[in-house]
Design a protein around this nucleic acid. Sequence first.
DNA 1: CAGTGGTCTAGACCACTCT
DNA 2: GAGTGGTCTAGACCACTGA
Lengths: 233, 233
Amino acid sequence: MNKYQIIHDELLKKINDGKYPEDAKLPSDFALMNRYHVARETSRKAVAMLVDEGYVMRIKGRGTFVINQNRYSFPISHVESYRELAARLNLNERTQLDAISDKDVPLVFDYGEQVPLPATEIVRIRYLDNEPVIIDRDYVLKDVVPEIKSLSASLSLFELFEQKLGLVISYAKKTITIETANTLDRQLMSLTEPMSIVVIRSETFLNDGRIISFTESRHRGDRFKSVEFSRRH
Amino acid sequence: MNKYQIIHDELLKKINDGKYPEDAKLPSDFALMNRYHVARETSRKAVAMLVDEGYVMRIKGRGTFVINQNRYSFPISHVESYRELAARLNLNERTQLDAISDKDVPLVFDYGEQVPLPATEIVRIRYLDNEPVIIDRDYVLKDVVPEIKSLSASLSLFELFEQKLGLVISYAKKTITIETANTLDRQLMSLTEPMSIVVIRSETFLNDGRIISFTESRHRGDRFKSVEFSRRH
DNA sequence: CAGTGGTCTAGACCACTCT
DNA sequence: GAGTGGTCTAGACCACTGA
């Protein structure tokens, strides 16, 4: 584990535990240097991560302060799996595996070449508080992962990629649009009335630049909420 | 201007101009050190910004590479004004100032205290290609900006804050939900049918920690698209 | 093996804030 | 003036990649 990562994690834990509550002042660069016996740039890197993540803000001449925290909703801007999300929010969550089959990546994903991309399609329905609210369709490219067993698909795909296969996920590109619920949506989510669906389509990339999967995540519009933290550029 | 900012801007310009096209390799840390006569950490900081912004990816032992770029849609995760967006996308854009008046911040914004917050309400309608697609309601706190003249409100609020008033915007917190178009939406956007509206509510903070404004931005659901770049944490 | 990015050090000078 | 964060330097060692 890197030094700056350790410092970051310890500070973040204290923020989440309320030891640094809202508006509290974090230790200064020099205080962190002494406490952890590191160079100043190392302690600054740890704090810079917290700034990036929206936990604290730094004010020149004054100090580093904890930002008012209520980021309890579905985050769009992070690559985060459903299981990680549910664990973080302490929600009663359940995932039902609907189907696994071989299927090319659909053309709604606007990947460059117009050649069919062989993939494994995994359809899952996500329940929060026993209500079906999300339909996930993952297309895992056969090029990268030739076969997926049914057992592991009921767990997290990210867990499979990272822990079992040793692949490292680097980033994703997501597109968010609004669509009207189609017949399949209504059926899978038990909808009786017309409903807007928030559609999040993403391509996930490995750290060597290869695409590993395309994902379509369809959220009930009336259950969807996202909270974002954004910095001024 | 900082050295790392200069290097960042020059690299970004070359990416946007196509001098570093997709998958192209950027100069290495050491090449940038020599070209700009800076220390390695300085050149690395410039590239780190490009990584943060999703323009490039770094692979250990290989190099730094330009990522496939098609981020041409409405960005949620940046604090970016409508004018900046339209300019970047080269869209035919027009803004119509609907009203300026004194009004407390509505309670839909979930700010802590339940005391009324006096503000200036600015209602603007945004046209893209001569079609009304966005309704913006800004509530600028009287505490920070006591008075807003009608003239400046037809321009960008951010321009007013930063250039005329010398205020520095630091970050924003945005909430995204889906609602059904209300009567006022239908009227202002000339909608005849029921329509989903993407509602983005944000609080904008200054670099001294004060809130300067609350904003509600209502987008036609069928014209809304957002492309996000997200890193794995 | 040389080249690359990742981490880390021990300094330095500056601008800003608060007392 | 003391304390803080912002920038910058000139090194160092490491892990990984590709020829």
